[in-house]
Simulated scan of single mutants.
Amino acid sequence: MNYQFARKLYNAVLANYTKHVKPRDLSAETVKVYIEFHINSVIDFNEKSGVFTFLGKFTLKWWDEIIAWKPSEHGNLDLLQVSIHDVWVPKIVIGNTIDYHSLYKFDNYFDSKMIYVTYLYNGSASITSSGVWETICNVDISKFPFDEHECSVQLDSMHPAIDVKLVTNREGAQINYTTMHSEFAIHVSTIQTGPLHADVTWSQLRYLIKLGRRPLFMMMNLVVPVYIISVANLLVFLLPLDSSDRMAYSVTMLLTFTVFMTMVADKLPATDPLSNFNMFLILQLVFSTIITLCVLLIHLFYNKDAKKTAPKWLQYLTSCKCKTGNQVGPIEKDGHFESTEQWKLVAAFLNKLIMVVLAAIILVELVFFYCLTGMK
């Protein structure tokens, strides 16, 4: 009995129905399409290409004034499902997707035949479409590894704005039950409505999704090692001045920063401006180069030819340093500076001076980078 009522109801509501005309008795009336967007899972976010891949579900609801009936006249049936190919549905596309534009995503034609629009007796219509989409994002790596990126899902109606208006009762995409990505998490979602541009004549909705990196992995495997190497770079000045390992140590540190630069370049997109961490690495590379040159200079001073005397200003600085009780070896013989010890004393003085100055600069740089990148 229910089947017979359902078949008669189906034939009755579609008898004089056409899917090519919006379901309004008065053509001047606008069809409001209410949209709910659920992000089921964040599949991937590629910083280099700026592509955000997600599994989502769209639920569309509107009122169809043509398909309506009295349940008492049709065996108390208050619900009817009709194939999407037989009735009017709002034509909506995702304006910033890269692979599939239609909101109704089907794997094949047979799959589309299995999708139905659900009608209630009062004309309320609804349909749900789900699938995997890829959209374009604005990549901002300036605060890497605490970077946040703004992605959007823009829905465009293919009808004139006077015919169809896209609306929503939500403040953004629904992310309460989203399965998050291991590296990126959704921090917040908002929405923009309207036509979004002055020259647009159709209705639009734009879901704004802010993705934030989970920084722990990058901190432990990239940032913290760079911090440690930056401090360890200064330890070369604590090695004995006559040690042959000083030069090898400083060159090794210089090559280490070069390797880290390569690692970061492989991970991050080639964007302008560079990330703060890129700038930090470049500065560390510069400081490591300066340290290597200073070690070389100190080595040359330490092994300077005894026939050449140090400049008077170096003698003055060295003698002042010695008067404070930091004398290194004999500095005077028969009332005159002995040249060999003089150059060694100059080398020792420069070694301590450069270490203190560079340590202070690097400490300030580390604190500044943390404040610039880590603070929200």
Rank of each mutant, 00 (worst) to 15 (best):
A348L: 09
A265M: 09
K61A: 10
I354Q: 00
T18D: 00
L314R: 09
Y116A: 03
F37C: 04
K376Y: 15
Y119C: 01
L281I: 04
T30P: 01
Q174I: 14
I66A: 12
N169F: 13
E47M: 04
P195M: 04
S102F: 08
L80Q: 03
T252P: 05
T193C: 12
T258Q: 08
A347M: 01
K22D: 13
D242A: 04
Y10A: 01
Y249W: 15
P71Q: 08
F45V: 01
T292V: 06
Y177C: 12
D305H: 10
H197S: 13
D64V: 04
P311Q: 07
A161P: 03
L216C: 09
M114G: 05
A359P: 04
Y227E: 05
L208C: 07
T252Q: 12
K308I: 13
D99A: 08
K22Q: 11
M219D: 09
V328E: 13
P311H: 06
N221H: 15
L222Q: 07
H299C: 08
M220C: 12
L155Y: 01
I354N: 02
L314F: 13
T193N: 14
T97M: 04
E341T: 10
H20Q: 15
E73C: 05
D305V: 07
K308C: 08
F110H: 12
L296D: 07
L317D: 05
E341C: 09
G123N: 00
G131A: 01
I228V: 11
S250M: 02
F184Q: 03
E65R: 13
Y302G: 02
F144A: 01
N108R: 08
P23C: 06
F337D: 10
S275E: 00
D272W: 09
I209H: 05
L205R: 00
F45Q: 00
S102K: 11
K333Q: 14
I290K: 06
T309S: 13
C322T: 12
T59R: 05
V153Q: 08
H181P: 03
L254Q: 05
E73G: 02
S102C: 10
L216D: 13
K210Y: 07
M247E: 12
V286K: 06
V51N: 07
V82T: 04
T118P: 05
S189P: 07
Q192H: 11
V357A: 02
L285Q: 15
C322S: 10
S126V: 06
K323C: 09
V224N: 11
T289V: 10
S230L: 11
V367I: 00
E65Y: 09
A125M: 06
H20P: 09
V223D: 02
V164Y: 00
L366V: 04
V251M: 12
F237N: 03
C320I: 11
M355C: 11
L274A: 15
L80T: 01
D99N: 12
D305M: 00
D156H: 11
L238T: 12
N76K: 10
F37L: 14
H149S: 09
K304H: 13
K307N: 09
Y100W: 12
A185D: 14
Y370K: 06
I43R: 02
S124N: 07
Y249V: 02
E341K: 07
